[in-house]
Design a protein around this nucleic acid. Structure first.
Length: 286
DNA sequence: AAACAGAGCAACCGCAAGGGG
DNA sequence: ACCCCTTGCGGTTGCTCTGTT
């Protein structure tokens, strides 16, 4: 059968291949889809002459070969969005991916598992625990906002402000929309994956290691611990406002103090900071 | 230079939902 | 109502690369 249901049974008896895809297989799949479009994947696999399951072809296409797949580092905006959306929906990776154009559910899932869960592990707490979630909400997300703000301020070519994102009534939705529209523009003009949606370069090292440093030199802890608002987004909003008011000192401190980098490299120091934060959270919740 | 460990990520697996016969 | 097939999703595995000892 072809993708429309016609028979092409000469390929049916082939032994199925597994494992990494070869270039030849990729080209076959791309060629076939370019000519016939996507369709019933099992039939497509056979008709394209691929010794693969339909599932395998679908996965390869959606996660890797599709022309609009966006590859490269997860930007700060994307990280923030992932944290926000995950706090709302949990492990609904495909749903989260819908708000990050060009990113696949698999990529987001991998990001979460390798980066976020790694830090939960370092903090010796469960990624689903309230303590860890609070750390994300009150420490990492505000810190991300602050860094995004710094990036936006540094950019002279794009006036779209992230502050708009966090000042909207529906902050989460607005975040998704602003980010999405930015990606749309970017994707229409360039395939570069190393610049963020505001056209500014993002450090290749843009994971949570950064936030350990933030906790060492800001007053976020006090703000967060004393913030009784249980709503993540509300709290983040309030916090971001507070953070921006006090963030300048930290920015200059971070940028101008070489020793800070050394401190950042010390997991023990910043784990201790985070443990302090977590302890405060526990006390607060009691 | 070799061995080892950890991180990152592509790919696979199992399950559930949906649609058609 | 039932069965079969396809698709989509989330969890998991295992390979490769890189950094460390």
């Amino acid at each position: 059968m072809d993708v429309k249901g016609r028979d092409c049974s000469e390929e049916d008896q082939m032994e199925l291949r597994r494992g990494p895809w070869t270039l030849e297989e990729d080209f076959k799949l791309i060629d076939f889809i370019a000519t016939h479009g996507e369709g019933r994947w099992n039939s497509l696999a056979r008709c394209a002459g691929l010794k693969r399951t339909g599932k395998s072809c679908r996965l390869r296409w959606l996660n890797y070969l599709r022309p609009d797949v966006r590859r490269g580092n997860i930007t700060l905006q994307e990280q923030l969005l992932i944290l926000q959306l995950h706090s709302r929906w949990g492990n609904r990776w495909s749903k989260i991916a819908q708000h990050l154009p060009g990113r696949t559910d698999n990529e987001i899932k991998n990001y979460w598992r390798t980066r976020v869960q790694k830090h939960a592990k370092r903090l010796k707490c469960d990624v689903n625990s309230k303590q860890f979630k609070d750390t994300m909400r009150y420490l990492w997300m505000p810190r991300l906002l602050e860094r995004i703000q710094a990036s936006a301020a540094a950019s002279t070519t794009n006036s779209t402000s992230v502050v708009q994102t966090v000042s909207s009534d529906d902050r989460l939705g607005a975040a998704a929309q602003v980010t999405s529209s930015s990606y749309t523009l970017e994707n229409s003009s360039t395939t570069a994956a190393s610049s963020d949606s505001f056209g500014t370069q993002v450090s290749p090292v843009s994971d949570f290691t950064d936030y350990y440093s933030s906790s060492s030199s800001s007053n976020n802890n006090n703000i967060s611990v004393n913030n009784p608002n249980p709503n993540c987004l509300e709290a983040t909003q309030e916090l971001s406002g507070n953070y921006y008011n006090h963030g300048t000192d930290f920015q200059s401190l971070e940028q101008n103090n070489p020793w800070l980098d050394t401190m950042v490299a010390s997991n023990n120091l910043f784990n201790a900071e985070d443990f302090y934060f977590l302890q405060q959270q526990v006390n607060f919740n009691m």
